[in-house]
Structures are given as structure tokens and as C-alpha cells.
Amino acid sequence: MTIKETIKEYICGELVGDDVVPSEIEDGYDLIRNGVIDSLALVRLVAWTAETFAVPINDVEIAPEDLSSVERIEAFISRHSPSPA
């Protein structure tokens, strides 16, 4: 599974609702403007990147825009993860 697919699976399973399948979420879909990610979801998402991809969240600067779409989340993970999955 690619990083993008893993991210989409997490978004569908944990943030959106189980009536949405990962393939419905386009890579560039704005998750913040479209109400998928709010401040609480952002915190959860960041924690998830730490658990799943070992992103050192205490050491990196995080702006909400960095996590506003699947492709941006992927770039964020790739930038900060010591060993991307």
C-alpha cells in the first residue's frame, strides 16, 4: 500500500465516516476547506503520522496547510519521516 493509500484509509476510517471509500478522496482535495479536518482532527492526524510513520512531531514545525490534502500530508510525511513506508 502506498503512503497516499494509507492516508486515505485513515481519513475514511477515522475522520470522515464509513460511507466513504478511499478512492473517493482525490489527492488534492482540500480537507480543511471542505470540513473534513478541524482542529481536533488535525491533532489526531499529527499523532497518527507519529505512530505510523515515526514523524518526530515534537521536533518539527507543523502548519495546518501542510496537512490540508492527501498529497500535502504525503509530502509532510516524506519530509520528516526517518524511513518512509
Binding site: 470522515v16 465516516g17 460511507d19 466513504v20 473517493e24 478522496i25 476547506r33 471542505n34 470540513g35 473534513v36
Partner: peptide, 11 residues
């Protein structure tokens, strides 16, 4: 209609 569309509508 699904949750994704409903979230976008509300947003």
C-alpha cells in the same frame, strides 16, 4: 450523498 459531500456542504 455521502458524509464527504455533507461535510463539504456544511463547510
Amino acid at each position: 450523498v455521502n458524509t464527504l459531500q455533507m461535510r463539504a456542504h456544511c463547510a
